[in-house]
Computed example of a mutant assay.
Amino acid sequence: MGQLVYAANTSLDGFVEDAAGSLDWSVPDEEVHAFWNERERGIGTSLYGRRMYEAMRVWEDDDWLAGEPDVVREYAAVWRDADKVVFSTTLQEVTTSRTRVERRFDPAAVRALKETSAKDLSVGGATLGAEAFRHGLVDECLLVVHPVAVGGGKPALPAGVRLDLELREERRFAGGAVLLRHAVRRTT
């Protein structure tokens, strides 16, 4: 059975993007990029909302990768090797391989996908992640906290949802980012 992992880059004040929608402060250095590459190798299926999928589909195209460092080109291969499910009512078609669209988020279907998966699954994007948290589907929360406070924007974690967490790993990166990996404890 696969675990569902919510993974995100976040600011110190808890946002995945700033008030203008910018992510420029979270561009990973080589060490953090290598961490994400290794982490994503264990993912068999990535769950995305439309906006996150549209941001991530750049990894399907080789044109821009020619002059990039090895660690960046390596991530493209890792991303392409995973299946992708995009939850969207507006996306007309997908333009990447190993990708399908689901018109609505069905917690029972995600639970079944976890139960039949030999590898872990990831949920990308704060909005879709919030839905997964609300339905008790997330098993692990992995945040790379960057040394910046952006003052507002899209929260990394859902409002109105209590999460009891157990610290499993912490790691400092040379550039100042910190990994916090928590198991989500089930409460009844």
Rank of each mutant, 00 (worst) to 15 (best):
T95M: 02
A126G: 15
V145A: 12
A130M: 07
V58C: 14
H33I: 05
T95D: 09
E170Y: 08
V58K: 12
L142E: 06
R104I: 14
L65D: 12
S88P: 11
T116I: 08
T99L: 01
I43P: 14
A159K: 05
A126F: 10
L91A: 08
G152K: 01
W79R: 11
A132M: 05
L180D: 06
G152V: 01
R80F: 07
V85F: 02
W36K: 10
P155A: 05
L4M: 10
T116K: 09
D70M: 10
A132S: 05
W36P: 11
V58E: 03
R73Y: 07
L4S: 13
R98C: 09
S46I: 14
E115Y: 07
H146W: 04
P69I: 02
T187E: 03
V101G: 13
G42E: 03
R41C: 05
G44F: 04
E170L: 02
A55W: 13
E169L: 15
S88T: 10
E102Q: 13
D164W: 00
H135Y: 04
G152M: 07
E140D: 11
T45K: 12
R111T: 00
A149I: 12
L179I: 09
F173S: 05
R185Q: 11
C141H: 06
A126R: 01
K84Y: 01
V86G: 02
R41N: 00
H135E: 14
G124F: 08
R186V: 06
E68Y: 02
V58M: 08
W64Y: 03
L137S: 03
A8C: 12
V32K: 04
D83R: 14
L179G: 14
T99I: 00
R103D: 11
E31A: 06
A55Q: 03
G2E: 07
P147K: 03
Q3S: 04
D81K: 10
E17G: 12
V72N: 15
G125M: 01
A174D: 07
A177F: 06
S22E: 03
N9L: 10
G176F: 04
L128M: 03
S11R: 03
V58Y: 04
V32P: 15
S22K: 10
L23G: 05
L163S: 11
R51G: 07
R50T: 08
E115L: 03
R57F: 02
H33S: 14
